[in-house]
Amino acid sequence: MSYVFPPVAAAVPVAGSDALFPVHRIYCVGRNYVDHAKEMGHSGREAPFFFMKPADAVLPVAEGTTGEMPYPSMTKNLHHEIELVVAIGKDGKDISVEDAASYVWGYAIGLDMTRRDLQAEAKELGRPWCTGKGFDNSAPISAIYPVAQTKLINEGNIHLDVNGAQRQDSDIRKLIWNVAETIAYLSKFYELKAGDLIFTGTPEGVAAVKQGDLLEGRIAGLGSLKIKLV
């Protein structure tokens, strides 16, 4: 038995190593910071909801480098969303909050790039968000930092600059649903697999970017993620 053509495996570099983390699925949590929910016209602690990106939407950026993201077609309103990304290291379903830490392999910085105009149109028509969220290169991601201990990341500054000017600045502790709660809730709907990535949501300050802009995201303890829109 042979493949019709060679399979393409999406993977993300591991910090401080030449190893690669193979990507199985990409889950994203919507409106998971209070102030971002408000800026998008919502409020309150609603149950977490999820959307997905294709595994090959990742745009891996190695440590100390600047990635290049082509400005996507079919949009005039591309937005940045800086996020803590959780890398899952083993399979599990119906995971308890108390056990969630044991499923975390590592953490990274991610950008949930969004064609906001297409997302808004989909919302208005009651259609899926796929064209607004799941396009090529829509998930830039830094190298993954392996977990040194089982403790989850529940606090730490999360920040994004565009062309050196601050756009987003908050703290992981402001997540409505923290990492453990998100893993537990998501595992009720899907059997999580080693290689899954969970983009945990973005704080307030999302805004449009244009070709030529330089984006630099930082999360305490995870270094930085730099991309240029080309």
Rank of each mutant, 00 (worst) to 15 (best):
68 E>M: 12
23 V>F: 08
141 I>F: 01
95 I>G: 00
135 F>H: 05
225 L>Y: 05
98 E>F: 01
4 V>S: 13
149 Q>G: 15
59 L>T: 07
150 T>K: 14
214 L>N: 05
86 V>K: 01
26 I>K: 03
195 G>R: 05
135 F>Y: 11
173 R>F: 04
220 A>C: 11
172 I>T: 10
14 V>D: 03
47 A>H: 09
191 E>Y: 07
215 L>H: 10
46 E>A: 15
114 T>K: 10
103 Y>A: 00
24 H>E: 07
174 K>C: 12
15 A>Q: 09
209 V>G: 00
101 A>P: 08
130 C>G: 14
86 V>E: 08
113 M>R: 08
210 K>D: 12
72 P>N: 05
140 P>K: 00
23 V>T: 01
146 P>G: 09
84 L>S: 07
141 I>A: 01
46 E>Q: 14
225 L>Q: 02
134 G>M: 07
68 E>S: 14
101 A>F: 08
81 E>L: 05
197 L>T: 04
43 S>K: 12
170 S>H: 10
36 H>S: 03
213 D>Y: 14
57 A>C: 09
161 D>A: 10
47 A>P: 13
114 T>S: 09
32 N>A: 02
227 I>T: 00
80 H>I: 03
95 I>M: 02
230 V>H: 13
220 A>L: 12
187 S>H: 02
77 N>C: 11
72 P>F: 09
212 G>Q: 05
28 C>Y: 06
144 I>Y: 07
75 T>F: 06
119 Q>A: 02
165 A>T: 15
223 G>H: 03
52 M>D: 03
136 D>L: 11
62 A>F: 05
170 S>Q: 03
134 G>Q: 01
149 Q>V: 12
108 A>Y: 00
185 Y>S: 13
65 T>Y: 08
151 K>W: 10
222 L>C: 06
162 V>T: 06
11 A>D: 03
101 A>C: 13
162 V>A: 07
90 K>F: 02
96 S>H: 08
45 R>P: 12
51 F>H: 03
17 S>N: 03
28 C>M: 04
210 K>L: 12
213 D>G: 04
153 I>A: 13
55 A>R: 10
166 Q>V: 14
1 M>Q: 13
49 F>W: 04
98 E>M: 11
55 A>E: 01
91 D>H: 03
